[in-house]
Design a protein around this nucleic acid. Structure first.
Lengths: 149, 149
DNA sequence: TGAATTAATATCGCGCACGATTAAATCGCT
DNA sequence: AGCGATTTAATCGTGCGCGATATTAATTCA
């Protein structure tokens, strides 16, 4: 014979199992991917979030901090120090917008622009490391984009 | 007329577009989910990684730091300070294994055990917030588990 | 015009996440 | 027994990610 309390406990144990949690699968996969990128990005002297910021700029430069924040879904409190580090590395330049002194315009330097070719290599090496069929990756990507928007 | 260099640039621009990067979709989704959990976990006084650590312990306690690190795929350099904070909050206890003084055994306190019920509420509220059919979530979870293992 | 409101970044504090290193305990092997 | 190798946690430094707050500039509208 099983009490109601026992049944409630069983339910809790079932529902809360780590391997059932989407949140953990996501958290863990994101950590794994960061770790996978690290050795590739070390060669460029970039961290993973810095690489993402450079992707934004390679797509279109110059852009304001706010536009980059929207593209990356990050706060200025995250972006500002990151961008200062990229500036320190000589990959970007930061300047106030003369038309609106509140805005800071981020533009690629020649060195930052030149890194694009190496980035292409990183993207290809990462794809090889994943060793997963492209359609599966595309499918996963689209599902992730839809999640919790 | 288009030069080879232009063609290579076009390829780079295409391949490196942010919306084509699985890595960014994953990174961004993980950030979004953390933000979604935050208000729910604030009520329990837990951060998101602390919640994951508690999930491990609710599943099975006691466990060593190493076992928890394996379950969560985290280093001791991440786990040790996190566990000290949970200890400070009175949710877990840390003690050396008498059979092997290198190991540290983590066990739930009564308060930590009691929090399980509230955690069940968090899991349910999160599911509601996601507002996505369960099969879609299960599918996504399994795809994430397979990624970059 | 000028005071209040709004907008764009920056600053600060906290808690991860991890690589590199260290410290201590155990194991393995002779 | 003894000693080098291995294992287990902990420590340290760096770089996020974000909420709360501050700062400065632009806008609104009385």
């Amino acid at each position: 014979m099983t009490s109601d309390a026992d049944k409630a406990l069983d339910k809790a144990v079932e529902v809360l199992r780590l391997d059932r949690q989407l949140c953990f699968a996501l958290y863990s996969a994101a950590n794994r991917v960061t770790r996978l990128y690290r050795p590739l990005l070390d060669a460029l002297g970039l961290t993973y979030p810095q690489y993402l910021a450079m992707l934004v700029l390679w797509e279109h430069s110059p852009r304001t901090v706010g536009e980059m924040g929207q593209a990356l879904d990050l706060e200025s409190s995250t972006l500002t120090p990151l961008l200062k580090r990229l500036e320190g590395a000589g990959l970007i330049a930061r300047s106030r917008d003369p038309d609106d002194e509140r805005r800071v315009i981020i533009s690629l330097t020649d060195a930052g622009d030149a890194m694009r070719d190496q980035a292409l290599g990183v993207a290809e090496q990462f794809f090889c490391k994943l060793d997963t069929p492209l359609p599966e990756l595309v499918d996963l990507r689209e599902r992730l984009k839809r999640l919790a928007v």
